[in-house]
Every structure is written in C-alpha cells, then in structure tokens.
Write a protein that binds this DNA or RNA. Structure first.
Lengths: 201, 201
DNA sequence: CAAGGAAGTGAGTGCACACTCACCTCGTGG
DNA sequence: CCACGAGGTGAGTGTGCACTCACTTCCTTG
C-alpha cells in the first residue's frame, strides 16, 4: 500500500478515535494499532502528532463543506429552497456523530493550537461564502443557521440531544420546520463506541 | 487559612488556568504552584484531578446562572425586557473569556466524563427553567438565545470574534439589536494570557 | 503542658505517551 | 544479479504528570 493511501487510512482511523476520545486523549500508539501499522511508521507518515491532528481537522472540514455543496447543488437542481436543504445535510452528518464531535474538539483546541485555529477560521469562511453564494438567505438567517449548528454540536456532546425532557425537546427543535434537527436514528450516547463497521451492506 | 478557603482559592486558580490551557492540558502541579500550595496538599483538598475539574465546572455554571438571575431581577425591577437583559449579561460574561472557554472545554469533555456531562445537562436545565420562569419568551426565542450563546463561544474560541472580515461581522451580530454581541473591550486573542490582576482600580 | 488534630510539605513512584534509531524486506531498473 | 529506494518494524528513551507517603508545624482544648 502506498504511503499516500496509508495516510488516508490513518486519517480515517484517527478521526474516529479522536472524535470518541478527544484529540488530546487519543494516543498515537492506538491510532497506529487500529490502522494496522507500527507506531514508528505512523511518525514517518506524519512527522508529529500535531501534523496528524491538523490533517484530521482539515479532512473533517472538507467533508462538511462537500456535504453542504452537494446538498446545495441537489436542491438547486430540484428547485427546492437551498438553505433548508443544507440544514438537512447538517442533520444528515449527525447520524454519524464523528464529525460533529470532532468539530467540538477542534473548537476547544483552537485557542492553544494556531494550526487548528486557522483551519477552523478558514472552514467558517468557506462555509459562509458557500451559503452566501448558493442561497439568498439574509445575514440574519445565515447567522442563525450557524448558531443552530453550534447548538446541535453541544446538545449532541452533552447528551441533551437524547434526553427525554421538555427543555431538551425545545432545544433540539429545528429552525426551519418544527421538527427535531436530529435524525430519528440519533439515539447513540456519545459514550457508546462508534460502530466499527460501516453500515453499507 | 482554612481548607474550605483554600479550596475556593484553588478553584479560582484552576478555572483560570483550565480556561486558558484546556482542562486536560492543565497539570495539577501548576495549579498548586499558582495557588501557592504544595502539589501534595492539592490532593488532600481534592482527592483526584477529576474532583477538581468537576468543582471548577460546577462553579462556572453557578456563576453563569447567578449572572443571569441578577440580570433578570434587575430588568424586572426597572421594567425592561428580561430576555435582552439576560443576553447582555452573557455578553458581559464575555469580557472575561474565562467562563466562556471553560464552557467550551466542558462541552468537549462531556462525552468522556459522566460527571461533567451531568453538570452540563443540569446547567442547561436550570438556565432554561430560569429563562422560562423570568421571561415570556417563546420556545423558539429561548432556543435561539441558547444557539446564539453557543455560537458566541465558538467565535471567541476560534478568534473569529476578533476577525475584521465581513463574515465575522455577520456572525457576531446579536440576535436582538443589530449590534455585536461582544463587548467593545473584547479584543484579546484567546491565546493571550488572561490578565493576572482584576482591572478594578 | 500534654495530646490531638488540622494545615501543610519534600521527595518520591510508576505509568503513559510522543518521538527515535537501527534495522529489515521487498520490488524494480540498470 | 545487485543496488537502491520505498514500505515497514521492534525495541527503546526521555519526559511529563497524577498520585502517594512519611513527615513537620502549629493551634486548640482538656
């Protein structure tokens, strides 16, 4: 397997582990083990843990951007409203909590980590530009869209998203329709290990 | 100094350090040193780091709740609208980024730390109840209020709050008035060490 | 003035983890 | 057929950190 392919694989493994356990709390040895390579080789693929973390965060940001872009394209093609479609795309990302938790960890890491901070700033800038370009939403609507996204991250991380209480119901209600932002299959506690196998039979 | 007073002092020091450096990234030895006690004695005051972290998070949540409560009381007394007043109170909390960053770190820690998760759930529940009791805001308004708060946390952590770009301007605009949520003196980069001395001349 | 207990410490211990070094093993081109 | 470069590793090393233990000091109270 080429080094480039290995790197991809390592990023995939690392993003799962770091989403579950937190970035700082994920040992590089474990990433190597789950990726099926030696600890030593991991450090040939990524010179430092820092480099791996940056790669993971940037990959996650790219995936979110791509999800938004394809949702926007599809909505334009079928003539639906674009912003709600993007909102649904974010909801779709939630059925795998990986990216969402990673976002949260990246935000918390930003103050101490200039690389991650720059990546997150760039990601917001790109997403903002995408939405501004692809929709006719007002600045206020765009801001609310991002705010709702941040709230959903927090609700998922704290487990409020799966709480059966009135205040939780209110908080997880979507901005656009009256329904919950969270997909119906969003029942996994964040503590539960993320499914090992991709559910693509 | 009594053990109880020491504990208070340690919580104050720890919450500053943990907000700056992150919770996991703050060594207990440093907390002890800045609090002027030995490392050994820290572990008599708090049996584990976990206990210290929980105390810090709960203290932070209590402070936010108190700030909201006094803002609500004051607004009711003077006859202003209560929800905007509470929003301003949150903005006021932002002039010292400590609590805000601590919130963010606590959210990111929640999936792995049952104590912190329980504390954050309880905090949201209490704040929600407070707002529901003290204001006549609709569920939608309350949800937007929380969403905006989460967005502000992230903008502060990523440094977008201090970015001079159009998208940053839009994101940091308040829900209620058209002005920025962030106080005018919010210029410190999150990387800058928090001021050592309280600026109360 | 003992005796007890609360406040407080110096000096470890053991472990987890980021990172390194010398080395191995093929597949390919000259 | 062999040299060399890319893929890959076993076995460390140094450091940082949570936590401990035996011990001191001093203040109160009978």
């Amino acid at each position: 397997m080429s080094a480039e392919e290995r790197r991809e694989q390592v990023i995939a493994v690392a993003s799962r582990l770091m989403a579950e356990r937190g970035i700082g709390a994920t040992p590089t040895a474990e990433v190597a083990e789950e990726a099926g390579i030696s600890h030593a080789y991991l450090f040939r693929l990524f010179p430092t843990k820092q480099a791996l973390v940056t790669a993971v965060v940037e990959r996650c940001n790219a995936e979110i951007h791509e999800a938004f872009k394809t949702a926007a394209d599809r909505a334009r093609a079928t003539g639906e409203d674009v912003l709600p479609a993007i909102g649904m795309a974010y909801g779709g990302l939630l059925s795998d909590p990986r990216r969402l938790l990673l976002q949260l960890h990246a935000h918390a890491l930003s103050p101490r980590d200039p690389d991650v901070r720059a990546a997150m700033q760039a990601s917001f800038r790109r997403l903002f530009a995408l939405i501004q370009r692809e929709t006719d939403a007002t600045p206020d609507e765009i801001r609310r869209f991002f705010a709702q996204g941040m709230l959903m991250n927090v609700l998922a991380a704290t487990g409020i998203a799966t709480l059966d209480e009135p205040f939780a119901d209110v908080l997880r209600t979507g901005e656009l329709d009256g329904a919950s932002c969270f997909p119906d299959d969003f029942t996994a506690s964040p503590l539960d290990p993320v499914a090992e196998e991709a559910p693509t039979p």
